Simulated scan of single mutants.
Amino acid sequence: MLGFLLQRLASAAVVLAAMSLIVFAGVYAIGNPIDVLINPAADQVMRAETIARYGLDRPFWEQYLRFARALLSGDFGTSFVFNTPALPLILSKLPATLELALAAMLIAILFGIPLGMAAGLKPEAPASKAIMAGSILGFSLPTFWVGLMLILLFSVELGWLPSGGRGDTVTLLGIEWSFLTADGLSHLLLPALNLALFKLSLIIRLTRAGMREAMLADYVRFARAKGLSRARVVGVHAFRNILIPIVTVLGLEFGSVVAFAVVTETIFSWPGMGKLLIDSILTLDRPVMVAYLMLVVAMFVLINLLVDIAYAALDPRVRLGGRA
């Protein structure tokens, strides 16, 4: 197991190094922030001083080396717009995004796995066909359109839920949380549901496919031949084996939920990292954009590492393969 972990950590370090160059090059190619930061009426002396202050007059390779050295020390630069360190600025928005992502994944898991198992156990039943038809809608409908329809139905027409914002929060362990208050929970429900719809459909189809395959496997037939109840065969033998691909996908999808919650946060005015990223792109705030993207890359690498560990714990063949 130790060799397996060392191999994954080495791979993670290589990925982070490569992505730092790709991220910096991509952000470097997006416009000139000086055109946004400096008043067009400023003279050439003020313009030159500002460019030199931010190091934007240096060649690309020198700017990247300075960025890489600062990155190793945990310094992601200072925001051009807010004039504060970029990483603490992003981390101050991270709890809101994480809360939204966790709520969305919780909805997807709690409803997706049981519905997928039901559809897999009786694939020809009318209820199973209805579940699969609903999952196709979840894949097909655009997130922004679903969000607008949710606001129109539950906020405008019915008046049951608020249309945006985070609502009242409670500070726990130094972090503000919305789900601990009734008002915050009502503000959280619609954006979480909107963000969960695609993941819910994905989990339903993945669970259904895994359950249908597992129920035809030899070990399930042997379990039935031993006289085990259907509930034990499904809940213990079949369910444990379909968890392996589900855990893998859930890990990757959680990272994508955090990274790509931009549309949902914008529609529902949720004060998370996605909204900050949009504002930073509009003002060409390079340090914030780079810090956000590097944080997302690091998060994906960490999630993949945790998924690999969980995968190895569920399937010993993975550990044996890494050792070989």
Rank of each mutant, 00 (worst) to 15 (best):
M1P: 11
L2P: 15
F4E: 14
Q7V: 13
Q7A: 15
R8L: 04
L9V: 14
A10Q: 15
A10N: 15
L16K: 06
G26H: 07
V27P: 02
V27D: 05
A29Q: 09
I30P: 02
G31I: 05
A42Y: 13
V45L: 11
M46Y: 15
M46C: 15
E49W: 14
T50C: 13
I51Q: 07
A52Q: 14
D57G: 08
D57C: 08
P59N: 00
E62W: 12
Y64H: 12
A68H: 14
R69G: 14
F80V: 07
F80K: 09
F80L: 09
F80N: 10
T84L: 15
P85L: 10
S92T: 04
L94K: 14
P95G: 05
A96K: 09
T97Q: 09
L102N: 10
L102K: 10
A103T: 09
M105S: 01
L106R: 06
L110E: 13
F111D: 02
F111L: 04
L115F: 06
L115G: 09
G116T: 00
L121N: 09
L121W: 04
L121D: 06
P123D: 00
P126I: 00
S128N: 07
I131F: 00
S135I: 03
G138T: 08
V146H: 13
V146S: 13
V146E: 12
G147T: 09
G147C: 11
G147H: 10
L153F: 09
L158Q: 09
L161A: 03
P162C: 01
S163L: 06
G164S: 06
G167Q: 01
D168E: 11
T169I: 08
V170R: 11
T171Y: 11
T171H: 10
L172E: 09
L173K: 06
I175F: 08
S178I: 08
F179I: 13
L188E: 06
L190D: 07
P191T: 04
P191G: 05
A192L: 02
L195I: 01
K199Y: 15
K199E: 15
K199C: 15
K199G: 15
L200E: 04
I204M: 07
G210K: 00
R221P: 05
R221S: 02
R224W: 00
L228S: 04
R232E: 10
V234K: 00
G235M: 01
G235V: 00
V236D: 06
R240T: 03
I242N: 02
I246P: 02
V247Q: 11
V249N: 14
E253Y: 13
E253Q: 12
F254K: 01
G255E: 05
S256N: 14
V257Y: 00
V258T: 03
V258F: 02
F260N: 07
F260M: 08
A261F: 01
V262G: 03
T266G: 08
S269I: 06
G272C: 06
I278C: 05
S280D: 08
D285Y: 10
R286P: 04
A291Y: 07
L293V: 05
L293F: 10
L293C: 10
V296E: 03
L302C: 03
I303E: 03
L305W: 04
V307N: 09
D308R: 05
L314E: 12
V318S: 12
G322Q: 12
